[in-house]
Computed example of a mutant assay.
Amino acid sequence: MEWFNVGKIVNTHGIWGEVRVISTTDFADERYEVGSELALHKADGSKPIMVKVASHRRHKNFDLLTFEGYSLLKDVDVFRNAILKVSEKYLSDLEENEFYFHEIIGCTVESTDGEIIGTITEIIQTGANDVWTVHPEQGKKDHYIPYIEDVVKSIDIEHKKITIEVLDGLLS
């Protein structure tokens, strides 16, 4: 079974077992719904712990979660820097032209002229549209490609290939 990142626990919040999570999912309400099962991968590399979400709320730029059976600060303090992951069985079907982060990260980006630009290493959520960080193979500085119709011309998830129109100034 495959697991996919949905967030990172960066700190605790208060004294009642709440943790602060920086989300890496577009589906926070679905992933952190009360009763959702997540795998908690601690930073020390120990065996993942299965947790069930007991509560979820937004606070500033964080998702605040509590887990069933972990009701005190001392219970969750050891979860700092842990990664929360969701099982592939909980992934839902997406609309046309929508993709999961794990489908996009690792794709090769090339121009409509066939020039290889690099590999997508990160997705930055800006609010308006996602921006893909593309790392070139020659060790040059990263490029930032907006996921908009004028730039992204085709996405082939099966072959991990994305074709873009290189607009003036895009790769400078």
Rank of each mutant, 00 (worst) to 15 (best):
Arg57Thr: 09
Thr66Phe: 02
Leu64Asp: 02
Ala39Met: 13
Gln138Trp: 10
Thr24Trp: 10
Gln125Leu: 13
Thr12Tyr: 00
Val76Asp: 03
Ser154Arg: 13
Ile157Gln: 06
Ser46Phe: 04
Phe4Gln: 07
Glu30Thr: 10
Ala128Gln: 12
Lys161Asp: 10
Tyr147Ala: 15
Ile123Arg: 05
Glu103Tyr: 01
Glu95Met: 11
Thr66Leu: 01
Lys60Ile: 10
Glu149His: 05
Tyr32Gly: 03
Phe67Ile: 07
Lys140Asp: 13
Lys85Trp: 02
Val76Pro: 00
Asp150Phe: 08
Val109Leu: 07
Thr119Gln: 13
Phe67Cys: 03
Ile22Leu: 14
Val86Pro: 03
Met50Ile: 13
Asp44Asn: 15
Val152Gly: 01
Glu165Asn: 14
Phe101Lys: 11
Glu110Pro: 01
Leu72Phe: 12
Ser71Asp: 15
Ala82Asn: 00
Ala82Leu: 07
Pro48Thr: 02
Val21Trp: 01
Arg20Gly: 00
Glu103Ala: 01
Ser154Ala: 14
Asp63Gln: 10
Pro146Glu: 11
Glu37Asn: 12
Lys74Val: 06
Ile9Trp: 01
Val151Tyr: 04
Val53Pro: 03
Asp168Ile: 06
Asp113Val: 04
Leu73Pro: 02
Asp113His: 08
Asp130Lys: 11
Asn61His: 07
Ala82Tyr: 00
Ile148Pro: 09
Thr126Val: 08
Gln138Pro: 00
Val152Pro: 04
Ile105Leu: 05
Ser23Asn: 10
Glu137Trp: 11
